[in-house]
Nucleic acid binder design. Structure first.
Lengths: 339, 339
DNA sequence: TTATTTTGCTTAAACGATAAAGCAATATTC
DNA sequence: GAATATTGCTTTATCGTTTAAGCAAAATAA
């Protein structure tokens, strides 16, 4: 059974396809289509179960009503949740989402951008990877609307939705300090990405503000590509010295989960022997025997804002950028001990 | 800066668009294009950074090289992981993925199918919701290729990728029995979906096989729409009677996590007071103080098989269906006690 | 040298939908 | 009754790409 097109309806009604198009896009009044004929066409369309061909429409209109979404990894709960809110929000505006995972890899990111742009997405929501500045620059030159989420490059004027990473990190670390911790370590990614630098900056701000001298050796960085090994090494180093850390601040979800898995195997009790605090939530952190205190990023807001800003940009067509910084909340639970 | 089209290249090279098309789709030999001209065209294309318009191509070819993916909820790790493998596998074949979440809701599912079909996806990978039989029937009538994952309807001839739910459940429950548990409860979804029925069937098979009389009251069903309340009630009922259950088999990931959260608040120790086993993995279950024994569904295989079968079906165009049943593995950890 | 083949390109139609412009026939105005 | 406006539809061009068909000019064969 072939797909039903305007032509089929036109044939059956004995009119031109133009007339059918006018009626089915509800321009029948404007196009002065006779009432009787309009009704007849609608009926035939229903009878044949006509479904407009979105591709043909896109070609004509130059708009695909599709958003491209590039995240680091769609199987990471943080991104999956963002993807979900973006999907929902997009659908409200009759947009669909094509997604891809960059794995924090510049080349994959470029590939994805190419593919999505070739597919004529109307705009992109991107979690940019380290070193992807030129890619964004190119998008700007091509006047393809895009919005960054989770991170951005201070040197590149682009719309983005982010949280106040520095303050949030400082609040988290201050919380550890107020809970009586003296030797606070941090585990971050080895990256130049701004959001991570800011979280590290916030960690250092808080220590300094409370006049806690902390050697640089308590700041550990793990490679994305060797997460497990690097985290284990980092934790070993943090905990096995003469003056072991009494608290660890994890820069993200995945770092915390991987870290806690290892800490579990070491038989170290949280929060008695070690306090733990992290960015991002996750069911794993809820279910942990000492539910982990964390910095909550408002995922729903981020997703909604990203879609809103992107659609504005698509509609506007000016190259003005919008930067949105959203506040986080510290959700205090058991993993930092008394308070 | 407008998008570069074949026309622009043709203009610059002083030839027709047809020639450019032949060259850039590497049909220059077949179409007897002069070597020099081919080279010239390729150079201009590179210089202008020509990117083919995928939409126009799709319109012409009738194929979009896009797969529609409908899952229950993309933010559920199980589906997010499947989505990831489908994305990767699709990309290998130059396909992209548009996704949507049905929330186990028939109407949303129908909406999604309509939207994706209108967008001319070449085929669909679907986690069908309860009551969506007609939707699938309609897809069959429209000759739109689709593959079901996770579940299927025994009454509908369709391609699907699933695991042997019944045996897997029986193996899980037998494991509990061998670990010395006598009163084994189960928490499932309240649904007629086949995979859940099968898991329940497997639970009952195992009990019967080991001649363990178990009242029906130990089988609990939670509504998807009222997960939290229903699970709490179920667990209360399972654990607070005169003869409380000494083990619980959760039919899925989400049930287990929600259940364990509540069990935690009750202060019940796993596995001493209660053994727990579940379908599906998850970081939360790894990080749990008694890492949870679970039935592992080979997500990678499922995703790959789904894409493979779908692409075969798209290529073949016969209405033959392929059903694939994959074995699971029981991953034994701490949550069922001694063994 | 003439006939035939090959080469290198162009023309034109098509995919399905949209929308401006055109054109009769009917209705309204003066 | 002639001039004008309105109605109801069709024609045609367009979006960007593909591809069969066509057509000169050049190369080869007879």
């Amino acid at each position: 059974m072939k797909k039903v097109s305007l032509k089929d309806i036109a044939l059956e009604a004995g009119v031109s396809t133009a007339l059918v198009s006018y009626v089915l896009t509800n321009k029948d009044k404007k196009a002065r289509v006779g009432e009787g004929m309009a009704k007849k066409i609608r009926e035939i369309a229903r009878k044949l179960n006509y479904q407009p061909n979105h591709i043909a429409r896109s070609l004509k209109s130059g708009r695909s009503f599709t958003i491209g979404l590039i995240v680091a990894d769609i199987s990471n709960p943080f991104f999956a949740n963002i993807a979900r809110t973006i999907e929902d929000e997009a659908k409200k505006h009759n947009y669909n989402v094509i997604f891809g995972s960059s794995d924090e890899n510049v080349d994959k990111s470029q590939d994805l951008i190419n593919v999505l742009v070739n597919r004529q997405v109307d705009g992109l929501i991107i979690t940019p990877t380290e070193g992807s500045e030129q890619q964004l620059q190119q998008l700007k030159e091509q006047k393809i609307p895009f919005v960054l989420i989770d991170r951005f490059f201070p040197g590149i004027a682009a719309s983005y939705i982010a949280v106040n990473n520095r303050e949030s990190a400082a609040v988290a670390v201050s919380h550890l300090i107020k809970a009586g911790r003296k030797r606070i370590g941090m585990v971050a990614y080895k990256t130049t990405l701004h959001h991570i630098s800011e979280r590290i900056g916030g960690y250092q701000d808080a220590l300094q503000q409370h006049h806690i001298k902390t050697p640089n050796s308590l700041l550990k960085k793990a490679r994305y590509s060797h997460l497990k090994e690097d985290i284990q090494l980092a934790i070993d180093q943090l905990l096995k010295g003469k003056q072991p850390a009494d608290a660890i601040f994890f820069a993200t979800n995945s770092l915390a989960i991987e870290g806690l898995k290892y800490i579990n195997t070491l038989g170290i009790r949280i929060p008695d022997e070690l306090a733990v605090i992290t960015f991002d939530e996750g069911e794993a952190l809820d279910l942990f025997y000492a539910p982990v205190t964390f910095v909550r990023q408002p995922i729903l807001e981020i997703g909604k804002a990203a879609v809103r800003v992107l659609l504005e940009q698509i509609a506007d067509d000016t190259s003005a950028t919008t930067a949105i910084c959203i506040d986080t909340t510290l959700v205090v639970r058991k993993s930092c001990g008394s308070r």
